[in-house]
C-alpha cells in the first residue's frame, strides 16, 4: 500500500516547481499597480521640478506618502519577480543565480531608500 497519494507525488514536479504561485503573485501586484500608478505618476510628475520646500510638502502629505510607499513596495516586488523571470529565460547556472541576487538586492535597496526618505520627510 502506498501512503503517498498521486497528488502528493506530482506536486512540485512541473517546470516551475511552484505551480502557478509566481503567475498569481504577478497578477495580484499588477492589478494593485493598475490602481495606484496613474495617481502616483500625476502627483510625482507635478512635484518634479518644484523647489525643495514644495517637494517636501508634497511628500509630507499622508496620501502622497502612503501612496508612494505602496507603489515602492508593490512595484519593486513586481520588478524583482519580472526581472527574475527574464533572467531565467536568458541565463543559466551561476550567472543566473548572481543576476537574480542582483535584481532582488537592487529592488530591495531602492524600496528601503524610498521608505527611509518618506519617513524622514514625514517626521
Amino acid at each position: 500500500m502506498r501512503y503517498l497519494t498521486a497528488r502528493k507525488r506530482a506536486e512540485g514536479n512541473g517546470a516551475s516547481h511552484t505551480g502557478t504561485a509566481h503567475h498569481w503573485s504577478m497578477t495580484l501586484s499588477s492589478v494593485a499597480l493598475a490602481f495606484l500608478v496613474p495617481t502616483w505618476v500625476y502627483i510625482v510628475g507635478h512635484a518634479l521640478g518644484q523647489d525643495y520646500e514644495a517637494v517636501r510638502a508634497t511628500f509630507a502629505r499622508p496620501f502622497t506618502s502612503i501612496l508612494t510607499a505602496l507603489v515602492l513596495v508593490i512595484g519593486m516586488r513586481h520588478f524583482a519577480m519580472g526581472a527574475t523571470m527574464m533572467i531565467e529565460d536568458y541565463a543559466q547556472g551561476t550567472a543566473r543565480k548572481i543576476a537574480i541576487m542582483f535584481v532582488i538586492s537592487l529592488s530591495t535597496v531602492i524600496a528601503a531608500t524610498g521608505l527611509y526618505a518618506l519617513v524622514r520627510i514625514a517626521l
Binding site: 518634479l48 508612494t68 512595484g75 519580472g82 526581472a83 527611509y116 526618505a117 520627510i121
Partner: peptide, 23 residues
Amino acid sequence: RITGNGLIVGVMLAVWWLFAAAV
C-alpha cells in the same frame, strides 16, 4: 518586458531625487 525592466532607471532617478529631498 523591455519597458518593464527599463523602468528601473526612471525609478532609481526618482528615488534618488526623493532621498535627496529628505536629506
